[in-house]
Design a protein around this nucleic acid. Structure first.
Lengths: 124, 124
DNA sequence: CTGCATCCTTAGCGATACTG
DNA sequence: CAGTATCGCTAAGGATGCAG
């Protein structure tokens, strides 16, 4: 039983979409239903373990829906639930804010954390 | 010079407001200018080190403004910059989404009390 | 009051191997 | 294809003390 008390309501949001990967995953799923392997491909830096873990948590929180097709080979699709759809506005805004920031100053963003690994993926 | 590329633009947003504390800090600062000690008081679980660290990063990223009053004892105020103001929509939405989610969960809503000090240890 | 320095703990995350 | 299991590292985060 969960006995968490929030000091401020936004912590409830962070509990659901916080962490390194969930917003990225949801930003893809809000555009289209995707299979596990498709998510892996368009999120190049995530490991299977993390992807699986984050998807399970999002499913547990009622944000995404997991559809298993009983085929060989297995096929699983992930999509937003109705509850997940209520996040669409938030996700859209976060995406467009990121876009605006990148266009404003493409360099300023990474001046601070020099230690961070650069991603040379051609995919964007 | 190293150039960091994002696989998806929203990662630029996460780089600025990601982590455990920044959204919480900004949700307070979007309502009012606050001193260091005031932030410490209304975010009971944050340590001085983390608060200081997160504030510095937010300042470096141009999101908040640090105003030092040359007094004894020292007085420092934090507020949103114009760039920080562009986050207000995002923050507002995240806050209201959290509110809505709490209201859906009778258990959590009963445990939540705004601006009360510390955690209710009787519930932990 | 506002913070930085130091040391330490933790848990998030990753690499790899394995399974139905 | 879609995961799980195990191990281990590292960076995030925490406790404490010192300083302007």
């Amino acid at each position: 039983m969960k006995t968490t008390k929030y000091n401020i309501p936004v912590e409830a949001t962070l509990e659901v979409i916080g962490g390194k990967w969930k917003v990225v995953i949801l930003c893809h799923l809000k555009e289209q239903t995707l299979r596990f392997s498709e998510l892996q491909r368009i999120i190049p830096n995530i490991t299977k373990k993390m992807l699986s873990q984050q998807l399970r948590e999002l499913e547990h929180d009622g944000i995404i829906k997991r559809t298993l097709y009983d085929e060989i080979p297995p096929k699983v699709e992930y999509s937003l639930t109705d509850e997940g759809e209520t996040l669409r506005e938030v996700l859209d805004l976060m995406c467009s804010w990121g876009n605006a920031r990148i266009e404003k100053d493409p360099n300023a963003v990474n001046l601070y954390k020099e230690h961070e690994r650069g991603w040379d993926k051609t995919l964007l």
